[in-house]
């Protein structure tokens, strides 16, 4: 009851800058707000009707100079704040290099997180301190939003599209993980925690297959056990690839069907039949699995059956990791 902080913890590099921006705007707001609030009270009291001791002469009712002053000063300050905020925004949403990637799938009403080495977590996301993290986020049903207030970041989990965000956790500890986009009955129970571990402990945790450290259910709620086998995400993807029969045509040198070389898909520019060029990224691979006819590789025919409704979001993430790993190994690593 008596534990009521008035500010959230700040546990990411990006969060430091965003907090500074927050308090700067708050400072400006306090200055302008005070001018108006105290100004109005002062004027309304000083010029009250029964006070005849004040000077009311020369009460002009317009003046271009003051109009310009109270237009231009706020305008200049606004433009500075705008630019600063846009820069910080780009830091968390624009593509960056050299990250540790996690996939996050939102569904009514839980968060499912997948690490590249195959470790899976529900309603818990364990991360290393001091490393840039890329979270690739998608929803399986309605729109959710993946929010970590201590990092000052959030991103909507939208069905049908991968959204990415970047952040660098700095302080080891446990933080709220929240759904902030209303998603139905148990919206307020779609919560969990982010556990930040020092780099060494995190590596040890990963190697143990995500066992041991982040299993306790805490006051923050949520907290399902971490799990996962001995396979990496890409290896799980390879299994899925075979299980779905993709290998009958793709990655089959004896295939009777002429198919694009998926070892070259990831990260390349793909020429389409209609002349457009698209990037071979998560969104393209996802769409090409679910609805292959949407973007046809130049020189190929639309022979593949659509997999809409037959592949889960988890499997799609695995398949993407697999296809990514093919490109990485063929080009000698990332």
């Amino acid at each position: 009851m008596w534990n009521f902080p008035l500010v959230p913890p700040t546990a990411s590099e990006e969060g430091v800058g965003i907090s500074l921006l927050y308090w700067t705007i708050t400072g400006l707001a306090v200055v302008f707000g005070s001018i108006v609030l105290f100004g109005v009270i002062y004027l309304a009291v000083r010029y009250r009707a029964d006070n005849n001791a004040v000077d009311r002469s020369n009460a002009v009712d317009s003046d271009l100079r003051v109009e310009l002053a109270w237009t231009l000063v706020p305008l200049v300050l606004a433009l500075i704040m705008f630019g600063w905020a846009a820069k910080l925004y780009a830091d968390i949403y624009a593509p960056r290099e050299g990250y540790y990637e996690v996939f996050v799938i939102g569904k009514q009403w839980m968060w499912h997180c997948q690490h590249p080495n195959g470790v899976r977590e529900n309603n818990v996301l364990t991360l290393p301190a001091g490393r840039l993290v890329k979270a690739t986020i998608i929803s399986q049903d309605v729109i959710h939003a993946f929010s970590i207030p201590a990092f000052r970041v959030k991103r909507d989990a939208v069905p049908g599209r991968y959204n990415a965000m970047y952040f660098t956790p700095t302080k080891p500890g446990e933080y709220h993980l929240l759904c902030t986009e209303y998603c139905g009955t148990k919206h307020s129970e779609m919560i969990g925690k982010v556990v930040v571990l020092p780099e060494k402990e995190f590596q040890a945790w990963l190697e143990k297959g995500g066992q041991g450290l982040a299993t306790a259910t805490t006051s923050m709620g949520g907290g399902a056990a971490a799990g996962g086998g001995t396979l990496t995400l890409a290896q799980q993807g390879e299994q899925t690839f075979k299980a779905l029969g993709c290998n009958a045509c793709h990655m089959n040198p004896n295939s009777a069907v002429k198919v694009p070389d998926i070892t070259k898909t990831w990260g390349s520019d793909i020429m389409l039949e209609d002349g457009r060029v698209v990037k071979g990224d998560e969104a393209y691979i996802r769409e090409s699995i679910l609805n292959p006819g949407a973007k046809i590789h130049k020189g190929y025919q639309n022979l593949m059956p659509p997999y809409q409704g037959q592949v889960s979001e988890e499997q799609l993430v695995q398949l993407i990791a697999y296809i990514q790993s093919l490109a990485d190994s063929s080009t000698g690593g990332n």
Partner: peptide, 28 residues
């Protein structure tokens, strides 16, 4: 006068939401 007081606070806190980076933290 009450309008002036409350609208000023409402308007100025709109700035936190106009700013993209703080908007991300504060939205919803």
């Amino acid at each position: 006068l009450g309008f002036m007081g409350l609208f000023v606070i409402g308007g100025l806190t709109g700035l936190h939401l106009a700013a993209m980076a703080t908007n991300v933290h504060l939205t919803d």
